[in-house]
Amino acid sequence: MSTLLEVSGISVSFDGFKAINNLSFSIGPAELRAIIGPNGAGKTTFMDIVTGKTRPDEGQVLWGEKSQSLLRLSESQIAQTGVGRKFQRPTVFEDQSVEDNLLLALKKNRSPLSVLGFRKSSADGDAIAALADEIGLGDQRPRKAGELSHGQKQWLEIGMLLAQDPQLLLVDEPAAGMTLAEREHTTALLKQAAKTRAVVVVEHDMEFVRRLECKVTVLHEGSVLAEGSLDHVTQNQEVIDVYLGR
């Protein structure tokens, strides 16, 4: 299987504390993957490195068929290459409508001059309408994102990710603070997305991870502790010791 993202031997330390220690990770072009691990295991730092927010001290991050290095690109360039990220807290533009939020995310030329001259076509409108329906916000489009409920904001953010049409989706705790029904909807959205692209989900909640029915990577102290199906890793003695046993 070809790989979309290949992270090899990255390390990063903050003030002497090794947040990521010789971590290697790879994911294919249409794969769903869950990353679990205790607090401080380096899950968020890992995402920061892939998206360009943090530069690793050593190691490589290679992208796509041409094995392009992501380390020299800025955050916005990495995002344009096809890496989308969803933050832990829902971060949508509260002062703007659901429609505008989605339009911002819609895959288009991002340079200031082309955006200045941009006018929404009817095709863009249709694409946004379809996306809004998919994330269950079809009738909320004119509303300001700030008025939405917590769960709706999470979906809006997932919708924005899908609008970006990334090849790799990094999703940080998508189910936090959601009701059971909302979680099921979220699971379905992620599974659907993973049919055509790579999706990496960072999650604490084991029940949610189980529902995703995918390969799991366990992080601990900045490196990979175990990898495999959920049943496989939950039977691993080391995983039980550092994570599940507590």
Binding site: S74, A79, E94
Partner: peptide
């Protein structure tokens, strides 16, 4: 237009705009 949407986004949450792929510094 959309430009206004982007710069208001930068005002409220710069990092988010960056992760959407917009070159914030350029704007």
């Amino acid at each position: 237009g959309k430009f206004g949407s982007v710069i208001r986004g930068i005002r409220d949450d710069e990092a988010r705009v960056r992760f959407l792929g917009y070159p914030v510094e350029g704007y």
